[in-house]
Amino acid sequence: MNRGEKTFGILITFGVLFLFWILLSGLFDAFHLIAGVICTGIVTLMSHDLLVKGKDEKFIGKSLRLFCYIPWELWQIVLANIDVAIRVLHPKMPIDPLIIEFETPLRSDFSLVTLANSITLTPGTITISVEPEKGAFRVHAIAKEPADALLLDQTMQKKVAEVFFVEWPGTDQPART
């Protein structure tokens, strides 16, 4: 990493850690603020290369799109829990588990983590393992309908690919610049 990326990493790490210090302490007199600056400075010098690995392009755009993706995600969480509640409380317990695999064109760490978390929080599916080289996911589904919604419709993968500016092959959805 050259100097530009290093400075960017140091600034972002220092900003986030100092924001946490202010949030968790709640006291704004001189002693605590100066102690906060010294402590976050030492921690930033030791570990600034862990949070930001190089400067990705379109950082602001990705953060804004991630912010707009969260309400849809919360609605999916509520639907998932109502689905599980129906399956648990039903007297006949309609479950029929199966394991499926698929591939995606996502390659960066953060996008794979976001998709794995979203699959775990949607109705009826949990991620078993992720392979970073080919973007392959192995998913355990609890019945046939959630597995079909993940494998055939692929709405969730398309939404996450749209957040991270990745082009989805097979459709005419371009990576918007």
Binding site: I77, V84, V88, M93, G124, I142
Partner: peptide, 29 residues
């Protein structure tokens, strides 16, 4: 309600993977 449903699912489901389905989603919410 969701917390109790999660615990009942832990008792009712027949396998390790399906029990993780019940608790991982219901307990969080």
């Amino acid at each position: 309600f969701f917390t109790l449903v999660g615990s009942i699912g832990l008792l009712r489901f027949p396998d390790f993977y399906t029990r993780l389905h019940a608790t991982g989603k219901c307990d969080t919410l």
